[in-house]
Design a protein around this nucleic acid. Structure first.
Length: 895
RNA sequence: GGGCCUGUAGCUCAGUUGGUCAGAGCGCCACGUUUACACCGUGGAUGUCGGGGGUUCGAGUCCCUCCGGGCCCA
């Protein structure tokens, strides 16, 4: 075995060197001839390409890569593609800001359009200054920008050392993804799992789109309780409290809890609303809370989700007043037009924002005397779109839904309990850590509606349907026209359905395309199907699906993980993957979540350049799954030190016996050559490490594997290497005249190094690969994962304790010198060492090496430690009871 | 209001089914330039294991309760 060990080692430049080599040699290229049993497939989260990656990404993606590299070395053919989630609102927003444009679908396409800006350096262009452009122009800009981002992302991942197969990348907006997404939707539609409904739903007035339950975020929002009087037929007031008096024109009932004593006589009667004089019933419903406000609430269509529940369950009429733009309808509603409030509505409310309408209603209430007391300020939890900053409204609109167990599902009299089916899938999935399962269960259990998938946006996968336009000019939503699978992907807004031509768009007897796109998650939920070649590459699909691992963050269990389970369950009747590995958050040193707004975000690339990728990976790998971790530079420095130590220790271990002339030499890995007890003890200990590290990685506990391996490696450097140094040098013996003891040490060093490099390879892939390249062929990342058995047989019946004992004895000798404040090279002329009985055999067996490493020149007497002698926590209880130090060696000038 | 996670040395964290479990690394202090490594080595000090109860022969470990941090759902 030829060695070429450099004189000077360094971690610098390894990232680029090996990224290039791995690419050139196809080290991580997936071999698609492997069978399902031989494959380990990973469904990695496609990062959103709308901003920048942050340290949290580096953190969690490293966890995945550790698994990938481990499985690959275990002999699995790892299927590890990478996608980019470019689809959706984040990209739209970024394009608006970056290019200073805004999408207006009514505008025509402009050939060769050049945007007013190309990068505004983070400064958002005011909406008024944004240039309106056609949808097609807008999408072109989306694609231009994401292509740029994707290059940067890939560069970062390569530098971090993700062992992704870079020939397997995809975008959630590319043609394959669009086709898959549309195909899945059409399948859902065919089976009755997708449907459209005209229903009240959450609506973001800023982004002008419907929003799904999974995208909600409840936030504290300030408001005022207004105590407002309704009136019984005899004029007696009934007071309710509301934070949204502007919805008074939309009131459809007053509702109190059925057990509420105060309102028993009111149930079943009617009252009239103030200002508008609309007669409404007083009803009982258990969702009314007795101790909130007056205990009786006004139900409007629609102020919040409870209103929707009441409206549905009590079958109340719809009197909606708020439009998609968040303003009150411009036309006076019919139930008000004939009443006393018609004038108020027309003059004070029509076309107003909720804010100014509220002011107008409150003023009118004051005037009419129906406002009791002053409004009381309050903070209440209000629903927001997670990306928005105005409270959501509830607007009735026609939208597409996919069933997800959130609502009863019955067709032709038979009901299907999808919620229970999905809960059962959750139990089937192996979560790491296991407690993350409850997040899934809580979410599924708490769903209160099906999944709203249509979005009134632009940069997304189109809802693949058209609708006939009847002779009357009305659109027939009940009979959507669908494309065939072969036509996918389609854009119904620019393509005509089969049997029609473009001239018939919008014409009576013709068609219209559905203008909506699908929710980003409607596509993201298909990533395992997309990458596995579903309905596109049956051969591949069979080899990789269902997949083995879904790694992701805990924040998207309710969205990405859940929706993916839904789609796979509906489509294939299986879980999409066997395991879900959930990474924690990165917290800043104040234990706050790192976020851009706090300005505490570190650019990942800078981090990798400054500390080195192995170092950053070490920090990430040292944090357990599911546990939040501190952003700690100190931890990276430790990782860097480990990487450098690996280089240096390896260089040292491999240099013994090297011919100084040629710089090369022979090295053997033959276990039979390991004959010395201490060497065997070291291998015996290593065998245990291999077992433990392997078991830990199999259980998705990479932290434990790293810890066990790392600490053994340090002990190997500090004790074993020191102990065998002299023996391994072979004290002047020529290459042909080596003693068995010297060969034993050299061989044991080589075997241990070979094993430890492989154990560390998933964690610090660059340093280990560098060392591997000095003396082995191929990549360490394709080398087989070590097993304990060969080490055990090489170790024969040696006790791992012997190495610990010898190490402790050496430390005891060093302590004498340290206490005497002399150099470690100072000879010990004679000494007596007290050793606990249990360690005595180990110390005795290595006494020659101990003497050498401790520079003991005269007699070294070993005695059994007596009761109370020595502290077991210090050097295992081994103490030097008497010693005589020689002259410290002359100091040599450093150089 | 319900649920989950978390609180161990100045810092970051291990402590598997209750019995050497008071640990590691960093930092700190002292010393040392040893033919791998100063991006180093050697040695040392450091804790009422959040508080209080309880179960037990025995409790960071199990139970109850309170307090502090984080998150999710109402």
């Amino acid at each position: 075995m030829v060695r070429e060990v450099p004189d000077k080692v360094s971690t610098d430049g390894l990232e680029q060197k090996f990224d290039e080599r791995w690419s050139a040699e196809g080290t991580f290229t997936f071999d698609r001839t492997a069978t399902r049993e031989q494959v380990y497939s990973i469904d990695t989260p496609p990062p959103t390409v709308s901003g920048s990656l942050h340290v949290g990404h580096v953190f969690s993606y490293t966890h995945t890569d550790v698994v990938a590299r481990f499985q690959r070395m275990r002999g699995k053919e790892v299927f590890y593609p990478m996608g980019w989630d470019d689809n959706g609102l984040p990209t739209e927003r970024r394009v608006q800001n970056y290019f200073g444009v805004r999408c207006d679908p009514s505008l025509p396409y402009v050939e060769g359009f050049e945007p007013p800006h190309a990068g505004t350096e983070g400064k958002a262009v005011k909406p008024a200054d944004q240039v309106p452009i056609s949808r097609r122009n807008f999408i072109e800009l989306c694609e231009r920008l994401t292509a740029d981002d994707e290059r940067q992302f890939e560069e970062l991942w390569r530098r971090l050392g993700l062992s992704v197969d870079w020939s397997q990348t995809y975008q959630t907006i590319d043609a394959t993804s669009r086709a898959a997404s549309q195909r899945a939707f059409l399948r859902n539609l065919e089976r009755g799992e997708a449907y459209q409904a005209e229903a009240p739903g959450l609506w973001d007035v800023t982004f002008q789109t419907a929003v799904a339950q999974a995208e909600l975020e409840a936030r504290e929002y300030p408001g005022h309780y207004h105590r407002v009087a309704f009136h019984r037929p005899d004029g007696t007031p009934v007071h309710i409290e509301t934070t949204r008096p502007e919805l008074l024109p939309a009131v459809v009932a007053l509702i109190a809890h059925p057990d509420d004593e105060r309102y028993q006589d009111l149930f079943g009667t009617t009252v009239t609303s103030p200002l508008f004089g609309v007669e409404i019933p007083v009803l009982a419903h258990p969702a009314a809370s007795v101790d909130k406000g007056a205990g009786i609430a006004m139900c409007c269509t629609f102020g919040d989700l409870t209103d929707v529940q009441w409206w549905r369950e009590l079958q109340l009429p719809t009197r909606s007043v708020i439009g998609r733009d968040g303003r009150l309808h411009r036309e006076t509603p019919e139930w008000i037009a004939a009443g006393p409030g018609a004038g108020l509505y027309a003059e004070g409310l029509a076309g107003r924002t909720t804010f100014s309408a509220r002011k107008a209603v409150v003023e009118a209430l004051v005037e009419s005397g129906d406002l009791d007391g002053d409004p009381k300020p309050t903070q209440r939890m209000t629903n927001f779109y997670e990306k928005g900053d105005k409270p959501l409204e509830i607007v009735t609109s026609r939208q597409w839904y996919i069933r997800n167990g959130g609502r009863e599902w019955s067709t032709d009299g038979t009901t299907r309990d999808l919620k229970s089916e999905l809960l059962a899938r959750g139990k089937e999935l192996d979560f790491h850590p296991d407690f993350m399962r409850v997040r899934y269960e809580n979410w599924v259990g708490g769903l209160n509606g099906d999944w709203l998938v249509s979005r009134q946006r632009f940069f997304g996968v189109a809802v693949p349907v058209w609708y006939p336009v009847l002779a009357s000019g009305e659109i027939d939503h009940d009979h959507p026209i669908t494309p065939t699978a072969a036509e996918l992907p389609v854009d119904p807004t620019s393509q005509a359905p089969a049997g029609y031509d473009e001239s018939q768009r919008g014409e009576p007897g013709g068609f219209v395309g559905d203008a909506d796109v699908m929710d980003t998650w409607a596509t993201s939920s298909l990533t395992p199907l997309i990458v596995a070649g579903w309905e596109r590459d049956a051969d591949l699909f069979e080899r990789v699906y269902p997949m083995d691992l879904r790694p992701q963050g805990q924040d998207i269990i309710r969205t990405w993980l859940f929706s993916t389970v839904v789609r796979s369950h509906l489509e294939c009747g299986v879980l999409p993957w066997k395991n879900a590995a959930i990474s924690g958050w990165i917290l800043d040193p104040d234990r706050k979540k790192m976020s851009k707004s706090k300005g505490n975000v570190v650019t990942p690339m800078d981090l990798l350049v400054e500390h080195g990728s192995d170092a950053v990976r070490y920090w990430a790998a040292a944090a357990r799954l599911g546990t939040d971790a501190a952003f700690e530079v100190g931890q990276m420095k430790i990782g860097r030190r480990l990487a450098i130590k690996v280089l240096n220790a390896s260089k040292f271990a491999l240099t013994f016996g090297v011919d100084p002339e040629s710089g090369t030499g022979e090295i053997t890995l033959d276990p039979a050559a390991v004959t010395v007890e201490l060497d065997r003890a070291m291998l015996a200990g290593l065998a245990d490490v291999v077992d433990q590290a392997t078991a830990a990685l199999e259980a998705y506990d990479h932290t434990r594997a790293l810890e066990i391996t790392e600490s053994y490696f340090w002990a190997f450097c500090d004790d074993y290497l020191e102990l065998v140094k002299d023996r391994a040098y072979g004290a002047g013996a020529s290459a042909s005249d080596l003693t068995a003891e010297t060969v034993s040490a050299r061989t044991a060093l080589a075997i241990a190094l070979d094993v430890m490099l492989r154990l560390l390879a998933p964690f610090i892939p660059f340093a280990t690969e560098e060392v591997w390249s000095w003396w082995r062929t191929g990549s360490v990342h394709r080398a087989p994962w070590p097993t304990a058995q060969p080490l055990r047989s090489a170790a024969a019946d040696a006790d791992p304790l012997a190495l610990a004992a010898a190490g402790n004895a050496l430390a005891a000798l060093r302590k004498v010198k340290s206490a005497a404040k002399v150099s470690m090279r100072t000879p010990i002329l004679s000494g007596t060492v007290a050793v606990p009985a249990a360690l005595l055999p180990g110390v005795e067996s290595a006494i020659g090496d101990i003497r050498g490493a401790g520079r003991v020149e005269g007699t070294l007497e070993l005695v059994e430690a007596t009761e109370g002698q020595g502290n077991p926590d210090v050097q295992g209880g081994i103490v030097v009871t008497a010693s005589e130090l020689g002259e410290p060696p002359a100091k040599k000038p450093r150089g």
